[in-house]
Structures are given as structure tokens and as C-alpha cells.
């Protein structure tokens, strides 16, 4: 499969680019309209976090094609200041940008798998997968 894996996030406009690329992969994999929209929303949230809190970072895509399941993996990576209290940002209703947007708990709900690692020196890395049903 022709696969461009990553989008660099530097300005708000790049969020759209990441959405577009993610949706293209999702469509090719055979995701329906609802899941495409959910994946795009998750990408938006991840890319916005990078843009707002880390300034720059990347959103990368990976198609998972195993014997029994197929899916799309999104990896958001930045070298920003890191998240000091992960359990706080994973709480519903917590959002430093004023309650707008779904935040990380929203991403977790939109996707099937969610994992976050954060470090004040290395920045933040989030992996999220949506499985094709």
C-alpha cells in the first residue's frame, strides 16, 4: 500500500493535513463514515494538543494488518514540556483550553486502544488504535 506515514504539526493548518491523511487511510482500510469521522476527530484532538502545548510534533499513521484483525494506529509524538499529571488530564471535564473539545478522554472514547507516555525531558507520546469491525 502506498503509505505516507507522518505529518509534522507546526501550525494550526497542519491539523487539517493530519485529518485529511488519516481519513484517507481510514477510507482505504474500509472504515465506515461514522468511524472515519471519529478517527478524524481523534486526530484533531491529538494534533491540537501538540499545536497548543508542545508547539511542534508529529502525527504518524500505521496500518495494522494481522491475521485476525485490521486497524489503524495513530502515533502522536512531541518534544514539549510533557504532562505532569496524566491522571488529571485523563479525567472527564478537565481541559486547560477551557472545556472546549473532547480532550484526551474523548480520544480514548473515540478509539479502541489508547496509551500515553509522558516525560518532562522527552515530551509526550500517545498511541491510539481503531480496529476495523
Amino acid at each position: 500500500m502506498d503509505f505516507k506515514p507522518c505529518v509534522t504539526i507546526r501550525k494550526e493548518w497542519d491539523i487539517v493535513g493530519a485529518r485529511q491523511l488519516g481519513r484517507k487511510h481510514a477510507k482505504e482500510l474500509g472504515f465506515g463514515t461514522v468511524d472515519q469521522a471519529r478517527i478524524a476527530t481523534a486526530i484533531s484532538e491529538l494534533a491540537r494538543n501538540i499545536y497548543l502545548y508542545a508547539r511542534t510534533g508529529t502525527i504518524c499513521f500505521e496500518v495494522i494488518d494481522e491475521l485476525d484483525k485490521k486497524g489503524l494506529k495513530i502515533v502522536a509524538k512531541d518534544n514539549g514540556p510533557g504532562i505532569r499529571d496524566i491522571s488529571q488530564v485523563m479525567q472527564d471535564g478537565y481541559s486547560t483550553s477551557g472545556g472546549l473539545g473532547a480532550g484526551l478522554p474523548g480520544v480514548k472514547r473515540l478509539m479502541d486502544f489508547f496509551e500515553i507516555r509522558s516525560d518532562s525531558e522527552k515530551g509526550t507520546e500517545i498511541e491510539a488504535i481503531k480496529w476495523l469491525r
Partner: peptide
């Protein structure tokens, strides 16, 4: 319209 409804779905779950 579907795209515009996504956040309402999340709000419902929350």
C-alpha cells in the same frame, strides 16, 4: 451533518 454531530456523541458518553 454527521461530522458536526461527533462532539455531541462524546458529550453524551461523558
Amino acid at each position: 451533518l454527521l461530522e458536526a454531530m461527533i462532539s455531541y456523541g462524546l458529550a453524551l458518553q461523558e
